[in-house]
Design a binder for these strands. Structure first.
Length: 233
DNA sequence: GCCCAGGGGGCTC
DNA sequence: GAGCCCCATGGG
């Protein structure tokens, strides 16, 4: 597998080449689509296994109800929260998760994250992972898009796209996939931000079938334009 | 009706 | 550490 060729420079060049191809095709994605750091965090919870369109409805409901703030989440009854975020699905679970992250923020940083992001990335990440409802993807989304820290976000699209390009195994574990990208890219929050957003942009156009031979898959033209094209190997 | 969407918790082995 | 089920609405 290509990922074995680590630290020889080729891999970094190829990952940057793919980034450039995506950027030229789609342009800047201006992520995260939120007004404040706090709203990024709320969105990161609500978007779990849910399309952003439905998350927007839930966030709009929270805003209209005047509870889209740290104090708002802390003071609002959990059943009321669940009702407001109903459009985002899993509303009972996510209401409990919003309460948990709100409790964490009130004890550790406040909604601005200032005291949190001063600390080493790995420490903050571990603390976030200890919060109910915050798994690795949500933690990295918060670190990157709310905190501006260089923590690469892996999602289903990342594994599907780079798996089909033959760069990583499609079933690579989250932590190994994250380590792979972070070991082979310069640690730039701006780069990680745009890269992940572009991956999602391409991922939305992919067929969701698991058939790697699908000729409609836009990853194929991407491969032909990059050094990972099997025809060039 | 069926499958999937910018996952994570809890449980089992 | 991997595999499975559950959470649940909305869109194609």
């Amino acid at each position: 597998m290509v990922m074995d060729k680590m630290n020889d420079g080729t891999l970094t060049d190829s990952l940057m080449e793919i980034y450039d191809l995506l950027y030229k095709r789609f342009g800047p994605q201006n992520w995260w689509p939120a007004e404040t750091q706090f709203e990024v965090i709320v969105g990161a919870i609500l978007t779990q296994s849910t399309s952003w369109r439905n998350v927007e409805k839930a966030i709009s409901n929270l805003r209209t109800a005047g509870v889209l703030s740290l104090d708002g989440l802390l003071e609002t009854d959990i059943d009321k929260l669940a009702e407001l975020i109903r459009p985002s699905g899993y509303y009972n679970m996510k209401a409990r998760k919003l309460k948990a992250i709100a409790g964490f923020l009130s004890e550790n940083s406040g909604s601005d994250l200032d005291s949190l992001i001063k600390r080493p990335l790995d420490e903050v990440r571990q603390d976030l992972l200890s919060v109910y409802g915050v798994g690795p993807e949500t933690a990295d989304s918060i670190l990157l898009y709310a905190g501006g820290l260089p923590s690469f976000v892996i999602d289903a699209y990342t594994r599907r796209i780079f798996g089909r390009l033959g760069i990583i195994p499609e079933d690579l574990s989250y932590e190994k996939a994250r380590t792979f990208f972070m070991d082979n890219l310069p640690p730039s929050a701006q780069l990680f931000n745009e890269y992940h957003a572009l991956i999602v942009r391409l991922g939305k156009e992919m067929c969701t079938s698991r058939n790697p031979k699908c000729n409609l898959c836009p990853v194929k033209p991407l491969a032909r334009e990059s050094s990972f094209c099997c025809n060039r190997a």
